[in-house]
């Protein structure tokens, strides 16, 4: 109960601030209109004027909420204006990229932990890869995957999503696979365990909590990657494409509603991953010792 109360307080504070912001940012246009008509609007008229503009600089919360409602519930999900439709397009590439990122992250981590040569050869590149801004890479990835014969945008978008999401998985998995201490390793030596037994019986299970912790970061990174993949690539579907269209055609409502749809999608994804994590933790002893 106290939890809900504290969350509500913050939400209400944000909405209040937002209304104040909307008022001041949209007021100039109201005053402009009034000056042209030779009127001086009262404060109430000003407030009303700032909350109802179609092309407000900063749309008010209730306007964005209305637009979200229209885009999700009132439109058919097959409509090109449905946020569910665009959200699903983005969700698809997010999940494909997420899966690819997990696979790449885990595979690289295993390679790096097992082989000292791989550690020296691969790790610097993994780090360098994260210093290159993904916005700069995105168009190139689209052009290249098109050149190799992938017509659909889902492949380059998934690649960009994977490019962002493999890194947290990689770093966590390396830490996790290396987490067993000298005593644990000595114990297995006294049993005469082989390297592969050490890996399967000790290193891998010991790394799972690290793995699940990294998934939350990775799924959020995947979503960012998928959206960024839709921005500079001429995509016409997806939440990123909606944002770009909104900004290019001066339709702030479209932009804002897409933005919130993306935030809601992110919350759902993280909630899902947290659920899977809790389930896995329960299956692995319920509590970390």
């Amino acid at each position: 109960m106290r939890n809900i109360l504290s969350i509500l307080t913050v939400v209400i504070a944000i909405i209040a601030l937002w209304y104040v912001g909307s008022f001041f940012m949209n007021r100039a246009w109201v005053m402009d209109q009034a000056a042209r008509a030779g009127e001086t609007p009262s404060l109430m008229q000003q407030i009303e004027g700032t909350m109802t503009q179609d092309r407000a600089k900063l749309p008010a919360p209730h306007q964005v909420a209305q637009e979200l409602w229209k885009g999700t519930v009132e439109k058919k999900v097959t409509s090109k204006r449905s946020l569910v439709y665009h959200g699903y397009i983005t969700f698809q590439s997010t999940m494909a990229g997420f899966a690819l990122g997990i696979f790449a992250g885990v595979a690289l981590a295993v390679l790096i932990v097992v082989s000292r040569v791989a550690d020296l050869a691969l790790m610097p590149w993994a780090i360098i890869s994260q210093t290159i801004p993904v916005v700069a890479l995105a168009p190139m990835i689209v052009v290249l995957s098109n050149a190799v014969g992938f017509e659909s945008l889902i492949v380059p978008k998934a690649l960009i999503a994977a490019y962002l999401s493999f890194f947290p998985v990689l770093v966590s998995m390396i830490a996790g696979l290396r987490s067993p201490d000298g005593m644990q390793l000595d114990l297995l030596r006294t049993y005469g365990a082989s390297q592969s037994q050490v890996f399967w019986k000790l290193r891998l299970p010991a790394s799972l909590p690290y793995f699940f912790a990294s998934l939350k970061i990775a799924v959020a990174a995947s979503l960012v990657g998928a959206i960024v993949g839709e921005l500079p690539t001429g995509a016409i579907a997806g939440l990123g494409a909606r944002m770009l269209i909104g900004s290019q055609f001066g339709q702030p409502m479209i932009m804002w509603s897409a933005l919130f749809a993306a935030a809601i999608l992110a919350a759902l994804l993280i909630w899902l991953v947290t659920g899977i994590e809790a389930l896995a933790a329960r299956m692995m002893g319920g509590r970390r010792a």
């Binding site: 005593m183 644990q184 000595d186 114990l187 297995l188 006294t190 049993y191 005469g192 365990a193 037994q197 019986k201 000790l202 299970p205 010991a206 799972l208 692995m284 002893g285 509590r287 970390r288 010792a289």
Partner: peptide, 24 residues
């Protein structure tokens, strides 16, 4: 060999921990 710390695997039950050397 018994070490200073019990070093039981938290993801295995007591049975599972005792089974570990037998499996290996």
């Amino acid at each position: 060999y018994v070490f200073q710390a019990a070093g039981l695997y938290p993801w295995r039950t007591i049975e599972g921990n005792i089974r570990l050397p037998l499996e290996i």
